[in-house]
């Protein structure tokens, strides 16, 4: 341990090995991954992950900027490793291909809030409720989500109410979403990664027998 050069090359070699193994090789393996093209029942080619609308793509930037990933994950663990599927957060585990449209990916590391990988699916056909972004506790009383009131313009009602105003039922005051609020809502509604992929088949349901 008294030879400087030996120490130097040892230190260099150990790090270079780990960089090759954990950064370079995965790039080789996953760097060329492409969206999956498949034909659905109506003979239409569908891509997975689907391209996002412009508004939803801007909403991704809002999500990143506000740091929503501090409390929300976007990853469904496999059925044999956690209750994610049982909780209805997804129908199958998340795989690398699901994230091709996300720059940067927002995997998250904390579940103080629900997983959002398939949040759009849970909304069904209903549009995302903007009131939840303004103040989550107006919709879910016990919610611990902090909300984003700064994405809305609160103004005293003088003439005709705005068509875009939230239906809060407060006389003399209206709350109108700013563009960022609509973008974030569009992004949240676009979150869906449940499509069947070659590497991620949907689990066979017992009752289907």
């Amino acid at each position: 341990m008294n030879h400087g050069p030996l120490l130097f090359f040892g230190v260099l070699a150990t790090l270079a090995a780990s960089w090759l193994g954990l950064v370079a090789v995965p790039r080789q393996q996953l760097g060329t991954l492409d969206a999956d093209l498949s034909t659905n029942a109506a003979n239409v080619v569908v891509t997975h992950p689907p391209a996002r609308s412009g508004e939803a793509a801007q909403g991704h930037a809002v999500y990143v900027s506000l740091g929503c990933a501090a409390c929300h994950t976007q990853q469904v663990r496999p059925e044999n490793g956690g209750s994610d599927v049982a909780r209805g957060w997804g129908v199958r585990r998340s795989v690398a291909r699901d994230y091709l449209r996300d720059e940067p990916v927002q995997l998250g590391a904390s579940r103080l809030g629900p997983d959002l990988a398939n949040f759009g699916d849970r909304l069904g056909t209903n549009a995302f409720n903007l009131v939840r972004l303004f103040n989550p506790r107006l919709v879910v009383t016990k919610s611990t989500c902090e909300g984003a009131p700064y994405l809305f313009e609160v103004r005293t009602l003088t003439g005709e109410p705005s068509a875009a105003a939230l239906a809060l039922g407060e006389p003399g005051r209206e709350v109108v979403p700013k563009p960022a609020a609509r973008q974030l809502a569009a992004y949240l509604a676009s979150l869906s990664s449940g499509a069947e992929l070659p590497e991620a088949p949907l689990p066979v349901k017992e009752e289907a027998k």
């Binding site: 490793g81 956690g82 998340s94 994230y99």
Partner: peptide, 16 residues
């Protein structure tokens, strides 16, 4: 071993 724990925070996650 110090450099090889990169995916330790991604157990069950969408990586190989």
């Amino acid at each position: 071993f110090g450099g090889w724990t990169a995916a330790a925070g991604l157990v069950g996650g969408p990586v190989p």
